[in-house]
Simulated scan of single mutants.
Amino acid sequence: MSEHMPVAFAPAAVLFDMDGLMIESERALLQCWRQASQRLGLALDDELWLSFVGLPDRTCVELLRARLPEPQVQALLQHCHARYDVQVEAGLPLKPGVLELLALLAQRGLPRAVVTSTRRERALQKLQRCGLLAHFDTVVTGSDVVHAKPAPDIYLLAAQRLGVAPSQCVVLEDSVPGVRAALAAGMTPIQVPDLVMPDAAVRALGHRIVDSLLQARALLEPALTTGPC
């Protein structure tokens, strides 16, 4: 399948990842990790921080514990989160095209969900501060499932909450774990990569890949009707 093939069915719902897809948060968090590790004198590079993209907090902590003793892990988390809290509270920038796409979906009467690995309290804080929360029918977070992305559980729960079949859901994702989760749930993902570009193995999954939410809208809009098929 072409990476730029329009969606061929009228979706019953559109599910959105949050960080790196709707909110320009991954770069801010990357910088917080860098600054925190430098302050503590830790020799950690961007490869580690980029490996966190799309993963739940608990998995990121385990990756840190594989490299650092527990006191350093806790100090790093404290410094990073303190810096990031300030930015989240101020309201992080939105990705270009997200509000226009949400307005279009609302106009067409399509249910919308946020599906994020972020813990619930933090996810709701981000969505509220960025002015996105009111645009969605439900928010499903990493706090709501046992098995995080790339397991399909979080997307299946979103479909259940919206009362739609997984096969009739289009998913917008930036991360590889998110794309794999959507595919495992039997959904149709459109990937909008942010910090981590898809390699050959990811492209071999055969899903749609675009450069922006504006391009994602172009693939989705021809399939939109006043309601699902």
Rank of each mutant, 00 (worst) to 15 (best):
R65V: 04
P150V: 07
I23F: 12
P166K: 07
V171I: 15
L42A: 01
H4V: 09
I190M: 01
K149M: 13
P189Y: 07
L205A: 11
A216E: 01
R108C: 12
E24K: 08
G227K: 12
R67V: 13
P71C: 13
A159L: 12
L21R: 00
M197R: 14
V73L: 02
Q160S: 12
I23K: 01
A151K: 12
A181L: 01
C130W: 00
V14E: 05
D153N: 10
V7M: 11
D153G: 11
L101A: 07
P96T: 08
G20W: 13
Q72H: 09
V98L: 10
R67A: 06
R67H: 06
H79E: 14
R161Y: 07
P189H: 07
V176W: 04
L99M: 14
C169D: 00
V73Q: 08
G91L: 10
L94H: 15
A13Y: 09
Q72A: 15
G97T: 11
D211K: 14
T118E: 09
T225F: 02
Q107W: 03
D174A: 10
L104G: 06
Q191T: 10
V210M: 05
R122Y: 03
A82D: 15
H135N: 13
L104E: 10
A181Q: 03
A106W: 09
L214N: 06
I154T: 11
Q78A: 11
V14Q: 03
V7W: 04
L220P: 03
H147T: 04
Q160E: 15
L162D: 05
E221Y: 06
A200S: 10
P150A: 07
V171H: 12
G178T: 02
L92V: 09
L157Q: 15
Q38P: 04
A103Q: 12
R112N: 11
L29N: 06
A90H: 06
A13W: 07
T225E: 14
A184F: 01
R39L: 15
V179D: 01
D137E: 15
L224C: 11
E70C: 14
R129V: 10
L157D: 06
Y155H: 14
R203H: 14
M22G: 05
M22N: 08
A106R: 14
L205M: 13
E70M: 12
V73R: 05
F16N: 03
Q215Y: 00
A223T: 03
L219W: 04
A216G: 02
L21G: 01
T141Q: 08
F16S: 04
S143W: 00
S143M: 15
L30N: 08
A106Q: 15
L102S: 05
P177Y: 04
A134C: 07
D45A: 15
V98F: 06
D194C: 03
L220I: 06
L157K: 09
R27A: 13
H207A: 01
Q74D: 13
V196P: 01
Q87C: 02
M22S: 03
C32E: 04
F136S: 08
A13M: 06
L102K: 13
P166T: 10
L214I: 12
V73C: 09
V114T: 07
Q168L: 14
C130P: 03
K126Y: 00
L224D: 00
F16Y: 14
V196I: 15
A113V: 11
L205C: 02
P166N: 02
R203E: 04
L21N: 00
L205W: 05
L77T: 02
V14R: 10
L162Y: 00
H81M: 06
Q74F: 00
H147Y: 09
Q160F: 03
